[in-house]
Design a protein around this nucleic acid. Structure first.
Lengths: 198, 198
DNA sequence: CGAAAAGTTGACCGGGCGGTCAAGAACGAT
DNA sequence: ATCGTTCTTGACCGCCCGGTCAACTTTTCG
């Protein structure tokens, strides 16, 4: 739907509060009534974009991760999938970034984000149980993984336009060492491991 | 100034766009004119809060860091100072978080944030030059340090209310390993190093 | 005291917002 | 051609926003 694309673009560029319905409908040259023929409110549309986007990202991540049972393979795979997804869905990635600080949608966006955290926590617990990484606060470590992924993706891909694979390498390297998985995955200088392109 | 405190509180709780002048003046029970007696606009006030807050944080960090010339001492010290500062200035920390995604102030906030990045980049370059950490993209690593610090501070301190020192330990641990400084600072299990309280 | 200066009030203004709706245009079925 | 349905329009509504200002109260000081 053209309207959803236009809305996503506007929201990504200006944020939720600063985007008016007029901005959206004017950007594709239709009357304001069209918006309310297809959606019941600005709130509802944004909420749906958010929820569907997050679902899509999670599905991409689950698919990328299902090739292995080894957390030290699954974790990098999940990270790479997230970076590739963000490269392919830059507007949605931008949306996620401000949504969880937004006054209206912060709670909703944070709830969705917790799903990603929980996924990561599960992997980290598994890794700990297997002795692949030292014991630690899995929740904090999971938040570190997310934070680093978001930070380097925002800068490397959306602002500098570098290739997703290259940025993903940086994220994976920092994160694997951060969680203490250093010695387990021939990483010393392994910045160009084989991986699937998005 | 009471008005600045009230404004900071409102901005931190609701964001810039969602906070109205009435919210601010009503929250301390004064007329709207008072606001415009002391400030010229909502924009100007927010910009000042942002700039002064960031200056204060940077000064705290510079002070904490000046005890040593060793980047592997200065970097953890800078991180700890940032976490302690955020614990002592939770509203400002909250402000920083959404400011650089805001439509009106994103550019300004990001410019201020770049100063922190530059500080960190300088330390990382120094560490690399000394052979204390492996070579790498200093800019990306600096962004990782900031991102991890922000993420764990937000969750650990502002949402869970844990002590700053404890959260700082987690941040330092993850970051030092992330930048590859693992073997240089007796870190294996060193989660309670001596440090100054804020 | 009394007058100037400093500080405070809240009604008010223009404007833009999210959202509504009577009026039609476009189109397929008959 | 005619009708019913789907889709589109943009003027319009009530509301609240950032910001103004004439009137008023409080403080300062000779």
């Amino acid at each position: 739907m053209q309207l959803v694309d236009a809305a996503t673009q506007c929201f990504a560029a200006r944020g939720y509060q600063a985007t008016s319905i007029s901005d959206i409908v004017d950007s594709i040259g239709v009357g304001k009534g069209v918006f309310y023929w297809y959606f019941t409110s600005k709130r509802e549309l944004f909420g749906n974009i958010l929820t569907e986007g997050m679902t899509d990202l999670r599905l991409a991540q689950l698919a990328a991760v299902s090739d292995s049972d080894d957390p030290l393979v699954r974790i990098p795979a999940g990270i790479r999938a997230a970076v590739e997804w963000a490269a392919a869905n830059q507007q949605l990635a931008s949306l996620f970034e401000f949504a969880h600080r937004d006054a209206t949608f912060g709670a909703h966006a944070r709830r969705l984000r917790e799903l990603l955290i929980e996924d990561a926590v599960a992997e980290l617990r598994q890794a700990t149980a297997m002795g692949a990484i030292p014991d630690g606060n899995a929740d904090s470590l999971a938040r570190c993984l997310l934070a680093v992924t978001e930070a380097l993706t925002t800068q490397g891909i959306r602002r500098e336009g570098r290739p997703a694979a290259e940025v993903a390498d940086e994220v994976v390297r920092f994160c694997l060492e951060g969680i203490g998985a250093a010695e387990a995955s021939g990483h010393r200088g392994a910045s160009a491991a084989p991986q699937s392109a998005s």
